[in-house]
């Protein structure tokens, strides 16, 4: 059954766990494998952490997560209205980070792209960033 949800939350780090637990509950009716479930949770955690740490570096803003189940695909959009990304191509490169002194690995987008089936990132300086991602959940015969 198709389904859709939206949550909005403050860009504070304890909401990283909130976002991944909400998405896990939302996709549970699709009977994802443990591997699929952890892929989606990890990708959401990465995108939400990016919004909190990089989107709103000095302020608390609003992060929105929209998720939609269409047949056996889950579409997830995580967006902020923060500072935006100056050079998107650079940001998507493995190991690239604007905060090396904070011990950031620069692997966030690489993990999102590896764990999800389709990923697009759009960003506008001073307007914010949106990460759209899709994961197809395998149908297991019951």
């Amino acid at each position: 059954m198709n389904n859709k949800m939206t949550i909005k939350f403050d860009s504070v780090s304890q909401n990283e766990a909130l976002a991944r637990n909400v998405i896990a509950s939302f996709i549970l009716p699709l009977n994802p494998s443990l591997s699929e479930l952890s892929d989606v949770k990890t990708a959401v955690s990465e995108a939400v952490t990016n919004a909190i740490v990089h989107g709103y570096p000095d302020t608390v803003g609003e992060v929105t997560m929209v998720a939609e189940i269409i047949d056996s695909d889950v579409h997830i959009s995580i967006s902020d209205s923060g500072v935006g990304i100056d050079d998107l191509n650079k940001a998507l490169e493995p190991f690239f980070t604007t905060k090396p002194d904070d011990e950031r690995s620069g692997m966030g987008f690489t993990i999102i792209k590896t764990f999800m089936d389709d990923v697009t990132v759009s960003s506008r300086l001073n307007f914010g960033t949106t990460v759209n991602m899709v994961k197809s959940i395998s149908k297991v015969a019951v």
Binding site: S45, E103, I111
Partner: peptide, 12 residues
């Protein structure tokens, strides 16, 4: 659970 933050923390 661990995301890429764990990688940065370990490499540090």
């Amino acid at each position: 659970f661990m995301d890429s933050t764990g990688i940065g923390m370990l490499l540090g």
